[in-house]
Amino acid sequence: MSQEHVLKVENLVMHFGGIKALNDVNFDIQRGSVSALIGPNGAGKTTVFNCLTGFYKATGGKITLSAGGKETSVIKVLGEPFQPADFFSPVAFVRRLKYKMFGGSHLVNRAGLARTFQNIRLFKEMSVVENLLVAQHMRVNRSLIAGILNTKAYQKAEEEALERVFYWLGVVDLVDSANRLAGELSYGQQRRLEIARAMCTNPEIVCLDEPAAGLNPSETEALTKMIRVLRDEHNTTVLLIEHDMGMVMDISDYIVVLDHGEVIAKGGPDDIKNNPKVIAAYLGAEEDDEEVTL
């Protein structure tokens, strides 16, 4: 696979018991692009997100993340059931056992994919700065001895972490609230803090689940600007789920439309706007209404 696609989803299937939430979903995300995943309510957008980020283990298919110079199979790191062949190959057996015992969605994040949540999940009883420090867990000095003795190397690592914290607080315009509890912030501030927290894990692709939900128009505009900053200044690929069509059409380079667990259209904003299938999915089957524009 080329380096051009940061994320490749092939034949993704997700069943919950008898309910087929996703049926054969395929799409690729271009490196350095802003892509959107849209669709009516219940189309399976958040299910796709949860599969990509490792919170659901997909029933079938392949999700390949190529970040940090290597390819990661998202489904494999979550721990797959043993196959008969594993019992004859100790290496494969040990690898599978390792992922089964210590695997999980945290490995997806370490491979370079960060996410935010539809219902904000901040550490509410911790301060804003601490929220962003937790996100840098994998990048600071975690040695117990160094920390207890407060060595030079430890202090340096903590200072660098704090510098990154204040950089990202600057980007999301929260420097003045640095020493407040995350739970005390207003809704819009919490949304921005969650994006900053995701970015502090140093991802190559960041998945935003309805980042503009509950924001007023001026806040949405600020968010649009911020997403452009992520893409242009930090070379981060952005994948978002959003219902605000104005924002989606404004910001996206590429749009994937889902309906009933299937991809019904993908392409640039202009293609999607005029796609009859998309219009039908959003407004119902009768297509005699000519004035509909998205």
């Binding site: 919170f55 949540f117 994998m138 995701a198 894990t201």
Partner: peptide, 8 residues
Amino acid sequence: IACRSLGL
């Protein structure tokens, strides 16, 4: 859940 999403 948020912890896991941050690589912890």
